[in-house]
Design a binder for these strands. Structure first.
Lengths: 325, 325
DNA sequence: TTAATTTGTGAAATGCATTTCATGTCAAGC
DNA sequence: GCTTGACATGAAATGCATTTCACAAATTAA
């Protein structure tokens, strides 16, 4: 409730001296320092964060733009961002957009309004051009390849990840392969489709739209995948599933319906989530957690003006053989 | 980059008039309104959020204090809080404390420093007394029974939830029952233990410390539970597992080890998470999501001064019979 | 037509801490 | 003894938008 002026009066010094004591600046006599500390104690003073933010032009807050947090991939990403934020002394403003552009815009505006020192875009619906136009107001880092833009990015090569999974399945003798993922029109969705198409082309297998499943986000969606497959005349012998949670749903439902895994249906998951380990799902580890941590580092480099070029960091990945192939 | 003063000059009006236009106040002539709008457009103006926060003494931000977000229970809670925040126009500042008191304190200090309009405590390590001492600086709502304190709360009666699960198992003929949960010394942990002890007392069964498992947080911990049980001479025939994710780990590992569920080991989970539906785990639904939403409502009531007494809302719960008992 | 409102506008105060600038003291260096 | 630099301290400017207050002009009511 008290402000710095009252502390100054109580301690018998100027506000400048109080500020010096508060911020540990040199050139304050021991006597005055103690007087200020006593006044702070006596009046139960705490500085007003908003005043500090205003004058400093910094808030030590970074925005985290993502569709939802109740999802293994994003929760892991946020965990990583949290670790990075801790290291670099930032607070996280969580913005769940549900892929609505209007909400994404609101967050971008917070950057313009100087409420955020920077922004991490985990996944988005808006166009890159739109987002890029806000890069002038503050640094933006994307957890996805932002290409040749004034935006740093840490990302996973979705094409190669999918390629790796496909080649592994092909190596195991599969030719009738399907896949499922969340949004077919996202950057990752398009890349995966491209990888899928190219690999099938190599195999000389036809492209079957009905084996390319979309909107698989949660575990239940994985269960539904089995439903969908069971309605087909021809079924794939293997499935590449983006997200181990979904893969877990596929696996559980397959077993419930008496489809043996991997004999009748092989499954390769993605993201190496805990559920994959427990259920023995073969998956591709792509370091989602450290992606978040790195994102904060890149952002911090820009915020503190220490960065030169916009960086583009690609993360490595590897396939973990388990029991579903 | 521009500020309100420059807009005023450009539009040929006073800053007061600019402010009126910006905030949609009445009593501004159409001509000046248009002039201001044109200037805003021309200079690409956006108000400085920090200046607004300073003068208004409000930030439209609420803190969410929780140990980690990469966890089904908390992620669901945050989802609910997100919905509530949207309804009442708040932003969420996410504070992952990992149950470290120092970090919890930092968040509480943000309330004192007026960076937050209010705080939702999802789960904590600090004492209620400590937290309560910050209630003077801004409203606090707990997602746990805060008892007779100046803190509103929405909570689940952990005692009765556990009692319900136990009675269900007992009704199915089980007498040798164990349980697992995360933190034994938390409020929920103590209540559960009390319920467990009382019910065993009713049954006339001895209390076996080795059947009361702690630190079960993630899916892998559930798998480890089976390990731990297999090392015992005497094993329970049923397990009450706090958190369906953990229950899923228990179930998966049990099946992997050839322990038939429910014949050899019955499982009742908690929280009704998606995994419970997919894996057919009998569980107790306790509306975690709406708890978050309600928490924001209670907080908003206090922030806007519309609240009288501190509320204590208890949520209902119900057992969902599935295939693990 | 006069009194009472309603409408329109700007100057100035306000919220609060940081930082620059100016000034002053004291001791070390030449 | 005088110049320098280190140490100490406060007044005032700064960052930016909101809101109150005072006043003028235009209506409406009486």
């Amino acid at each position: 409730m008290a402000n710095i002026k009252q502390i100054a009066r109580q301690a018998g010094v100027s506000v400048a001296t109080v500020s010096r004591v508060l911020n540990g600046h040199p050139y304050v006599s021991e006597a005055k320092r103690r007087a200020v500390e006593a006044a702070v104690e006596a009046l139960n003073y705490a500085p007003n964060a908003n005043a500090i933010h205003l004058i400093k032009g910094k808030t030590q807050m970074i925005g985290v733009l993502l569709p939802f947090v109740n999802h293994a991939y994003f929760a892991t990403l946020v965990e990583g961002i949290g670790i990075g934020a801790l290291q670099h002394q930032y607070r996280l403003l969580l913005c769940q957009t549900n892929y609505e552009e209007a909400k994404e815009l609101e967050v971008l505006d917070m950057l313009k309004m100087k409420q955020l020192d920077g922004l991490i875009v985990c996944s988005k619906a808006s166009s890159w051009d739109k987002i890029q136009s806000y890069a002038a107001y503050g640094p933006i880092v994307a957890c996805d390849d932002a290409g040749d833009r004034p935006i740093s990015s840490v990302y996973i090569d979705h094409y190669r990840c999918f390629e790796l999974g496909m080649r592994y399945l092909i190596g195991k003798g599969h030719r009738r392969i399907g896949y499922c993922q969340s949004r077919p029109d996202s950057n990752s969705g398009l890349q995966r489709r491209r990888a899928y198409e190219n690999l099938l082309g190599e195999l000389g297998e036809p492209l079957r739209e009905e084996w390319m499943l979309s909107d698989c986000v949660h575990m239940e969606d994985g269960a539904e995948v089995i439903d969908r497959l069971l309605q087909l005349r021809e079924r794939p012998t293997a499935l590449l599933v983006s997200g181990d949670t979904v893969a877990g749903g596929v696996l559980a439902e397959a077993e419930r319906r008496g489809i043996r895994v991997p004999e009748e249906l092989a499954i390769v998951g993605l993201d190496n989530q805990p559920i994959a380990r427990v259920l023995g799902i073969t998956t591709i580890d792509n370091q989602v957690g450290s992606m978040g941590q790195v994102a904060v580092r890149l952002l911090h480099d820009r915020i503190s003006g220490r960065a030169g070029q916009f960086e583009r960091l690609e993360l490595s990945y590897r396939l973990l053989e388990r029991q579903t192939v």
